[in-house]
């Protein structure tokens, strides 16, 4: 019993560590890809690790009080928590204990915690940045939840683990015609979720001095970077779990540990691919103003999602 618990704790901690490692890799990867598109050499691919290390190695770390500190704590803890509740490469550590709604709300913990600390800094730029981030959230959540609800009703489950299981043997949701459209809609929402261009007004460095992060430096910024990097992993994994079967290609019962390895590699390849798509868009677009972003999501994306809902409604009867 005790050994089981320790095993579980180790597994969970390992998963969190893995998430952070992949996240940091993604940071360097993103910069490299963007640099190559800009016809630059770009930083080394391990740059993310260097940056985080440097930030945690800073000598002084300026804080604005205990509410400010909550930001770093809650953003790192919250995003790790959300990651634990996701099925990764078919491995569901805690994802059977909650469901998709829980994950959507768990994703709000780091966001709100981050906003709390940014607000506590008392910097107006941070407040404006948070306002934009929250509005962006409202904007992209509408098409996102519409598609997710459509999927839930279609598959008659709200559990992400079950959803992944139902998509095994390459019965990916992507191959269902209506959810192919859904995947495109969610991919657009993902662009906002990742705060990549054209939806990066919330952290616009030249306009509002990187927005919410304006007062963060040293280890605080390090924690926030960890959060942002991990958020990439979580959000892309969510997409992969929803539409691409969570990266499960081999059944564990049949192939044993090789299946784990292969599934894991496929999952990694898929999230990298999803992120890569987002990077391509990011590299070539200017940014929307926030009300333009809101209108974009609620007009075009949500309209498409509405058509999807009608389609699913016509196809489903209970």
């Amino acid at each position: 019993m005790v050994i089981e618990i320790i095993e579980k704790i180790l597994l969970l901690s390992g998963m969190v560590a893995l998430g952070f490692i992949i996240g940091m890799f993604f940071n360097g990867f993103a910069r490299k890809v963007t640099a190559r598109i800009h016809n630059r050499v770009g930083p080394p691919i391990y740059q993310g690790y260097l940056d985080v290390f440097k930030l945690f190695a800073k000598k002084t770390n300026i804080s604005h009080g205990w509410i400010f500190d909550l930001a770093a704590l809650f953003s790192v803890a919250g995003i790790a928590l959300a990651f634990l509740f996701l099925p990764v490469a078919g491995i569901s550590l805690l994802s059977t204990e909650g469901d998709l709604f829980l994950i959507l709300y768990l994703l709000a913990i780091p966001a709100l915690g981050f906003a709390l600390g940014a607000g506590a800094s008392g910097n107006p730029n941070a407040a404006v940045g948070i306002m934009r981030a929250l509005m962006l959230m409202l904007a992209y959540e509408l098409p996102l939840v519409m598609v997710i609800v459509a999927m839930m009703v279609h598959y008659n489950t709200t559990s992400l683990a079950t959803l992944v299981q139902m998509q095994s043997n390459f019965k990916w949701a992507l191959f269902v015609p209506q959810f192919f459209i859904g995947a495109i809609i969610v991919d657009m929402a993902l662009q906002g979720m990742l705060m990549e261009k054209p939806f990066d007004i919330a952290i616009a460095p030249h306009e509002i001095a990187s927005g919410p992060m304006v007062e963060f430096g040293g280890k605080h910024l390090g924690a926030l970077m960890l959060y942002k990097m991990m958020a990439i992993v979580v959000e892309t994994t969510l997409f992969v779990d929803l539409f691409l079967g969570g990266g499960v290609v081999l059944s564990v019962e049949q192939y044993g540990w090789i299946a784990y390895l292969v599934n894991f590699l496929v999952w990694f390849a898929l999230i990298t691919f999803v992120f890569f798509l987002a990077l391509l868009i990011n590299a070539v677009f200017p940014r929307f103003r926030i009300e333009q972003a809101l209108k974009f999501y609620w007009k075009y994306d949500a309209l498409a999602a509405l058509l999807l809902l009608i389609w699913v409604y016509a196809g489903v009867s209970i």
């Binding site: 910069r31 640099a35 630059r40 050499v41 770009g42 930083p43 080394p44 740059q47 260097l50 940056d51 460095p205 030249h206 001095a209 990187s210 992060m213 304006v214 007062e215 430096g217």
Partner: peptide, 10 residues
Amino acid sequence: ERFGMHAMAT
């Protein structure tokens, strides 16, 4: 950016 240098806002 080859050397990991980056312009920051604040």
